[in-house]
Amino acid sequence: MDKKLGFLAFGILFGFALSRVGASDYDLIVGMFVGQDYKLVGVMATAIIVGALGMQVLKKFAQPVKSGEPLKISYKELKKWSIAGALLFGFGWGITGACPGTVLAQVGEGKLFGLFTFTGMICGTYIYARLKEKHPDL
């Protein structure tokens, strides 16, 4: 399977699932943070459990992966500022009721203010690129 077309297809599935389950709904995300609606906790917990079980199955029965390479799991290292970054990300999550994946589903659904969250995210990434010039440890 061509990687780009494959990711286009999996992206459609991902966006469709996010939208259908309500992850692109401001009320569900903010409702989770103010302790009124825990549906998304259930979504994330299920996804983590299914993902973890799926990885075990993959390691036991589907190695090497389809291309013949050995499975290579990427690990995100904890850096000096990672926790501060995570907190900033959380601030944005609670304000917008969206995250980098669900905001894309919002844009597809035609939510106008989702487009502003999305534009802000591109600018935030640009700010990171600028900061990184002078602060390589970020």
Binding site: G85, F89, G92, I95, P100
Partner: peptide, 25 residues
């Protein structure tokens, strides 16, 4: 309001090294 929140998401995700899909899932 949503734009400013978006900036925090974008900047924070890069400093944290990932977002809800890459880190949390």
């Amino acid at each position: 309001f949503f734009f400013v929140g978006g900036i925090l998401l974008g900047l924070g995700a890069r400093i944290a090294g990932g977002c809800t899909s890459g880190h949390s899932i």
